[in-house]
Write a protein that binds this DNA or RNA. Structure first.
Length: 659
RNA sequence: GUACCCGUAGCUCAGUGGAUAGAGCGUUGGUUUGCGGAACCAAAGAUCGGAGGUUCGAGUCCUCUCGGGUACACCA
């Protein structure tokens, strides 16, 4: 309008409309820099003059929601809103949307397969895996709010040496040849995955002392990878390994369900190999001339994917930038099988003529009531009756792989392979959601008996060496700390169930509140702190708000569902709270587009602090005499709980109504 | 060697190229009668690792550099 009236030649669409919340309350509510409009390529006049001009036009429109328009150097347009009318609109929107406040349809009709957790099936989950699962589960929940159809897959590498190692450990224990810290038998109350972690560490030490065990390890691994091929007098290692993997995965699922983390489908590396998906993928890559088989050099006899600029050498020796997909003994590498899995996720291996067929069978009901499915290469006639159609799984438009940042290079190889096979669109719709690792603080490391006298600021975990904090241990410790009386003589103040929910809140919040590229140096006290910027604080804010609503109801007060008008003057804390509630749908949509869960955590914390502000700066709703003020505040509290509730659910935290 | 990530208050971290860089923890001092104090208020605490550059404007973008981490395996 300004441009037209001034008779200026400019394409309005090219001008940035960069409206943002004001940096300071004294500027107004929203600000918009008009400096970018000033350049010679744009309007060609000083920014202050433009700002004055636009401000004048805005003033003369007499909009109901704008109370004041001002201008500040060097060219900001500041807008102060009419609080009663804008606030009324915000409250009405939240009330109308309810649980759907923040929900959008940007992803309608788009199927996303998101893979997370993916813990090797030979040991218990540790806090590093927890970050993966919490980030992945939160991302899945975020995607669902935007209308995406989300399938959560948990990929289990059940064929590698780590599983073989536990089988070797069991065999050595049977022969009475393995020394295990804590004893070779499961301890009373010890879960199976914990027991396996223990004997896994023990067998690792045994390998160092007894090099001749390498032969046994190789035999077990070969048996697992080829199934059936075994000496008649030896145990069936393949079957033993399969049973082991299933039991450990079940233990992982139990751990994750304590944190409200659930899945749609378990995918197994053994099934991908057994169904011929890997063989088909390999043959396709080979037949299209994408692979090479060097006759000499370090990769002699292996099938490689040429990658990068060729070979390079450094002080540490020669490196090939090629990626080996098939080892010289004919077995596939991790990356090779990852390419096959990625193709399947997109539904590319669907063609019946390929002959790759998976059976999808129920694994069991999860605690959230949803069925978990598993994927197998074969099924008995009986099982086939319970099978789900293969079309229900995979066939994604977009694939998200939640894997730590150290796997960036292999992931890049996977996506590049898709591209070279001609699946350019699928390659572009593949996303490696990379996160940094969890390391241990010196205090945490010392608690595991590690020598920290070298003064390093953090210590890497290692499941192989037993240097790790297990997920269940952290959860249990959190519960104990919450149950511990705050005053020396006081009785426990909450039930065990409440403490468990709070522990979940604290841990999930802690695991996602950092930027993904930030290494988390885990300090137990910091992670489980129940005050300040924490999941527990969010729960208290929510419970306090709920308690106000509950007591209003008990007093027979019926809050109106619609307000004829708001009080003319709002308290600053009321206005700040309203504006932040208003920001939720946009904050959630942006966080989801960027797949940055920490933004949701930050939003929830900001909302909770603004509610606390409001709570402490206004007189109690319960005793409010002025009917219109009471109605407004009751609705504001209701809108707050609704928004906070929606944010907590997105974070996978079950909101508590009372503590 | 090559590539990527991190460096912001004593500590742990936020921070769309935009106005006076924000939280939590810790420190110091406050808040009883009023809806749950695991809360709130106030104070102190930052030449955003360093040097150049681009820009009307840089913690944010570019180049160089210093410190820390990771990857470049027929491991997983």
């Amino acid at each position: 309008m300004y441009i037209r009236e001034e008779g200026l030649e400019a394409d309005v669409a090219t001008l940035p409309f960069d409206v943002r919340p004001a940096a300071q309350a004294s500027f107004g509510d929203y600000g918009m820099p008009l400096m970018p409009w000033a350049g010679k390529q744009r309007l060609g006049r000083p920014p202050m003059q433009i700002a004055e001009g636009v401000a004048e036009r805005l003033r003369t429109t007499h909009s109901a929601i704008i109370r004041e328009v001002s201008v500040a150097r060097p060219g900001f347009l500041n807008i102060t809103l009419d609080q009663p009318s804008v606030g009324q609109g915000i409250l009405a929107r939240v009330a109308a949307a309810g649980e759907g406040y923040g929900v959008a349809q940007a992803g309608a009709g788009v199927k996303v397969v998101i893979e997370h957790t993916a813990i090797n099936s030979n040991k218990a989950a540790h806090v590093g895996h927890l970050r993966n699962s919490c980030v992945g589960d939160t991302a899945a929940r975020m995607l669902r709010t935007q209308g995406y159809q989300v399938e959560v897959q948990n990929y289990i590498d059940d064929t590698g040496v780590q599983v073989a190692d536990v089988v070797v450990a069991q065999e050595l224990i049977r022969r009475g040849e393995l020394e295990v810290e804590g004893g070779p038998e499961p301890l009373p109350g010890e879960s199976f995955d914990y027991y396996c972690s223990r004997i896994y560490v023990a067998v690792g030490k045994a390998y160092e002392r007894r090099p001749e065990l390498a032969e046994m390890r190789r035999a077990v691994l070969h048996s697992i990878e080829h199934g059936g091929a075994r000496e008649p007098d030896l145990p069936d290692y393949a079957q033993q390994a399969a049973g082991l993997s299933a039991a450990i995965v079940q233990a992982h699922l139990t751990t994750m369900s304590r944190l409200n983390i659930y899945y749609t489908l378990l995918t197994w590396e053994s099934a991908i190999v057994a169904a011929g998906l890997w063989r088909h993928t390999f043959e396709t890559l080979r037949d299209r001339g994408i692979l090479r088989k060097p006759e000499s050099g370090p990769a002699k006899g292996a099938w490689i994917l040429p990658f990068g600029e060729g070979d390079s050498s450094s002080d540490e020796g020669d490196h090939s930038s090629d990626k080996i997909l098939v080892k010289s003994d004919g077995t596939a590498t991790y990356t090779g099988k990852d390419i096959a899995t990625q193709l399947w996720k997109f539904g590319i291996s669907d063609d019946p003529s390929i002959g790759v067929h998976f059976h999808f069978l129920p694994w069991g009901k999860q605690e959230n009531g949803e069925e978990l499915w598993t994927m197998r290469a074969t099924a008995t006639a009986d099982e086939a009756k319970r099978e789900a159609p293969a079309a229900d799984f995979g066939h994604a438009n977009r694939v998200v792989n939640v894997i730590d940042v150290r796997q960036s290079y292999p992931q890049q190889v996977v996506y590049e392979s898709l591209r070279r096979l001609g699946y350019v669109e699928q390659a572009e719709n593949s996303r490696h959601l990379a996160y940094e690792v969890v390391a241990l603080s010196p205090a945490a490391a010392a608690s595991l008996g590690i020598d920290t006298s070298d003064g390093r600021s953090s210590y890497a975990m290692s499941g192989r060496k037993g240097i790790e904090i297990k997920a269940d241990d952290l959860i249990n410790l959190a519960i104990e700390r919450l149950l511990a009386p705050r005053e020396p003589d006081a009785a426990p103040s909450m039930s065990r169930a409440t403490a468990a929910t709070l522990a979940t809140s604290a841990i999930r919040y802690f695991m996602v509140r950092f930027d993904l590229q930030q290494i988390i140096v885990l300090d137990i006290d910091q992670a489980l702190r129940p005050s300040g910027d924490s999941g527990v604080y969010l729960q208290y804010a929510h419970a306090r708000a709920q308690s106000i609503l509950r007591r209003l109801g008990e007093a027979g007060y019926q809050a109106p569902t619609k307000l004829p008008s708001l009080p003319a003057a709002l308290d600053q804390s009321e206005w700040d709270l309203l504006r932040h509630i208003d920001a939720w749908p946009r904050a959630l949509a942006e966080a989801t587009d960027l797949l940055e869960p920490h933004r949701v955590a930050a939003y929830a914390f900001d909302l909770a602090t603004r509610f606390s502000d409001f709570y402490d700066h206004t007189s109690p709703v319960l005793r409010e005499a002025d009917a219109s003020v009471k109605a407004f505040r009751a609705m504001l509290v209701r809108a707050t709980t609704q928004t906070l509730r929606n944010a907590l659910l997105t974070l996978g935290i079950e909101p508590l109504d009372r503590l």
